[in-house]
Write a protein that binds this DNA or RNA. Structure first.
Lengths: 250, 250
DNA sequence: TCAAAGCTAATTGTCGACAATTATAGTTCG
DNA sequence: CGAACTATAATTGTCGACAATTAGCTTTGA
């Protein structure tokens, strides 16, 4: 196999992977144990609403459904609990987390705090290569409208890619773990369940580019401010939609 | 039993509990299952360094030591993983988390972000009763120097009480869970292992009272700013100490 | 002598069964 | 008729054993 052929195969594989599970974390480690695989399957099912939010989880039933023993399933449930997708009460059982408006707003408040700080840290700690890479990604996204099919999909992916790159750029393991490993599963769940493929795309793009500029200037304070505004704008956008809907219902 | 007697007993019980496990979270739910109890015991052992940081955990050994089956011990390990006190690699095993200076600083950066936001939310969401309660606590701490024994102890407890009250005052379940349920176990671990009964007590006290003032004025922006400075000051204090020690070693 | 391969021992992951707790349905009493 | 109690069924927690994987040591070959 020539190197050119090898590269082609690699890019094809990457494309397939991106399409099959495009919204997964960059922190995700590939599942080696069966509990891991079951965890991922249930995670997808919860995020996409195949298992209803707020519903009770029957251990024997799910174990049978996924063809594993109850111990293995419990192991999977433990990981789901770690990323706040299920809650467990001792001697009572597990429930899928509920999606409430209050919960959604609390999540955005928390994101504002954490990602704001991550952005400040990114301005301080990102390598020059990482910054170049991020600029390249952004300019690629700006010319990506010719990808006719699945525009909303690519918008969401573009947004996530940007945020992930900033978070990883903080080089702060604590922040990375909290945001990518825990919060973002919930974010994705809310996006799926509330059908939030936000129509803020164009504005978000210009906000993204200003944030990158601040990071590139190594201006941590500005970078944090802009990221917080960016997330707060999303939150207010949601609040407005809710207020609108309430007005219609009255 | 008269009501007066009942009250006396209650206060005595509270005092005992406070002394036995004074530094525990307000979010802690009492252990009902044996896995819970084992979890708490190992947690204490890790935080206080009885189980060395960075050391490998042998499941069979610990199971025998705590007189439980390996499944139960694994359940406990899962909860320890949830509060970032142990890390697990599939098919390899669990290790107690390492205490590094980098990790400590990352932890404080994260606290700054989260507690800063919690403080802003507290200014917006705390009830008047909660504010009164917090002011009372502060004035009690200011006159508590007559508690001769264990000054450092009471200083630490006072500091934690203050922070807990602010965090709970945010009324944001996400923030409360992240900070109290996860970060603070690590904070306590670092405090124990690095012997950090900070000598910033007097300055910290005045900082606390200014924060409460801002909350009382419902000035969220100022409250956040002051809390972030308060935590950043702790961090810088640590950084200075480390720099000092490095100079001595050279 | 050093590196690599193979083997043994120990550790982790998974399973099914039993014990303890909780939920449910039926019954009885006021 | 409704509320409280009781007995049964179902679910969760815990246990010990087996399978799969990894680590350490010995052996073999260059």
């Amino acid at each position: 196999m020539t190197y050119a052929e090898f590269s082609l195969v690699c890019s094809l594989i990457k494309q397939i992977v991106d399409n099959v599970m495009p919204l997964d974390n960059p922190t995700k480690t590939l599942a080696v144990t069966t509990a891991d695989k079951v965890f991922e399957q249930i995670q997808h099912a919860i995020v996409e609403g195949d298992i209803l939010a707020g519903s009770k989880i029957s251990e024997p039933e799910l174990a049978k459904q996924y063809q594993v023993s109850r111990s293995t399933l419990r192991e999977a449930l433990n990981r789901l609990e770690k990323c706040h997708l299920v809650e467990r009460k001792p001697n009572v059982g597990s429930r899928v987390v509920e999606c409430s408006i209050k919960g959604l707003l609390e999540l955005y408040i928390t994101r504002e705090a954490l990602e704001g700080m991550a952005c400040r840290q990114a301005a301080e700690n990102m390598t020059d290569e990482e910054i170049v890479d991020m600029k390249a990604m952004l300019s690629q996204h700006s010319t990506a409208q010719d990808l006719q099919d699945g525009v909303a999909y690519y918008q969401e992916k573009g947004d996530l890619d940007f945020h992930y790159k900033v978070i990883l750029g903080s080089h702060n393991a604590q922040l990375i773990n909290l945001i990518c490993g825990q919060l973002y599963h919930l974010v994705r769940m809310y996006r799926c369940q509330f059908g939030m493929n936000s129509p803020r795309a164009s504005r978000a793009f210009s906000e993204h580019s200003r944030i990158i500029e601040a990071i590139s200037d190594r201006d941590g304070e500005l970078a944090e401010l802009l990221m917080r505004r960016h997330i707060a704008a999303s939150r207010k956008n949601i609040e407005n939609k809710i207020a609108e809907q309430n007005k219609l219902n009255q």
